[in-house]
Amino acid sequence: MTSAPDPNITDPSGFQEAGAPLYARIRARLKLAIASGEYAQGDHLPPADELARKYGANKNTILRALRLLRSEGVIDFGRGRGAVVLHSAQRVELADLSVQLRQFVRLADESGIPRGAIISAIQRMPRVPAGARGGSGRNREWC
Rank of each mutant, 00 (worst) to 15 (best):
L30D: 02
K31A: 08
K31C: 06
K31E: 05
L32T: 07
L32R: 05
L32I: 01
L32G: 09
L32V: 07
L32H: 05
A33L: 15
I34P: 02
A35T: 04
A35N: 05
A35C: 11
S36W: 05
G37H: 04
G37Q: 03
E38R: 11
E38D: 05
E38I: 04
Y39L: 03
Y39T: 00
Y39A: 04
Y39G: 02
A40L: 08
Q41D: 06
Q41P: 08
Q41F: 01
Q41N: 09
G42S: 10
G42K: 09
G42C: 13
D43C: 14
D43Q: 11
H44S: 15
H44T: 14
L45K: 05
P46Q: 13
P47H: 13
A48P: 15
D49R: 11
D49A: 12
E50I: 15
E50C: 15
E50N: 15
E50A: 15
E50G: 15
L51P: 13
A52I: 01
A52Y: 01
A52T: 01
A52W: 01
R53L: 15
R53A: 15
K54W: 08
Y55G: 02
Y55E: 00
Y55C: 04
Y55V: 01
G56E: 06
A57H: 02
A57E: 04
N58C: 14
N58G: 13
K59E: 12
K59N: 10
K59D: 04
N60C: 03
N60W: 10
I62Q: 03
I62H: 03
I62N: 12
I62L: 12
L63E: 05
L63D: 02
L63M: 08
R64Q: 07
R64S: 08
R64M: 07
A65F: 04
A65P: 09
L66K: 07
R67A: 10
L68A: 05
L68I: 00
L68K: 00
L68V: 00
L68R: 02
L69P: 04
L69S: 08
R70G: 08
R70K: 11
R70S: 09
E72T: 04
G73N: 09
G73E: 08
G73Y: 00
V74K: 08
V74L: 14
V74M: 11
V74G: 09
